[in-house]
Amino acid sequence: MRRADRLVSDLDDLSRLHAGALDLYLRPADLDELLTAVMDDLGPGYTLRCILPEPCPT
């Protein structure tokens, strides 16, 4: 049920983003921290494939 709630929340955020009703605060982020958080959210049994452009923007 938690995953369904998260999905609904994410879809709601995405629709507000597309409508311009969601403010974005872009800032640099540590890729290791982001990927760790994603893997923690996914839980066991998932594989993450990350494809970055060459050269990777800094």
Rank of each mutant, 00 (worst) to 15 (best):
R2D: 14
R3Y: 04
A4Q: 08
A4N: 07
A4M: 03
D5R: 12
R6T: 05
R6Y: 05
R6E: 15
L7W: 05
L7T: 10
L7Q: 06
V8A: 14
S9I: 09
D10N: 12
D10S: 14
D10E: 11
L11R: 07
L11I: 09
L11F: 14
L14Q: 06
L14S: 13
S15N: 02
S15I: 06
H18E: 05
H18D: 03
H18R: 11
A21P: 00
A21V: 01
L22D: 09
L22M: 10
D23F: 03
D23K: 13
D23I: 06
L26S: 10
P28A: 13
P28S: 08
P28M: 00
A29E: 12
A29Q: 03
A29K: 07
D30E: 13
D30C: 12
L31H: 00
D32F: 02
D32S: 15
E33P: 00
E33G: 03
E33A: 14
E33I: 04
E33Q: 15
L34Q: 13
L34H: 07
L35F: 05
L35Q: 10
A37N: 14
A37I: 00
A37D: 15
D40F: 09
D41V: 13
D41F: 07
L42I: 10
G43S: 12
G43T: 12
P44V: 06
P44W: 02
P44N: 05
G45I: 07
Y46F: 15
T47K: 11
L48P: 03
L48M: 06
C50D: 07
C50N: 03
I51M: 14
L52C: 12
L52K: 03
P53V: 11
P55I: 02
P55F: 01
C56E: 09
P57F: 00
P57Y: 05
P57W: 02
P57I: 00
P57V: 02
T58M: 00
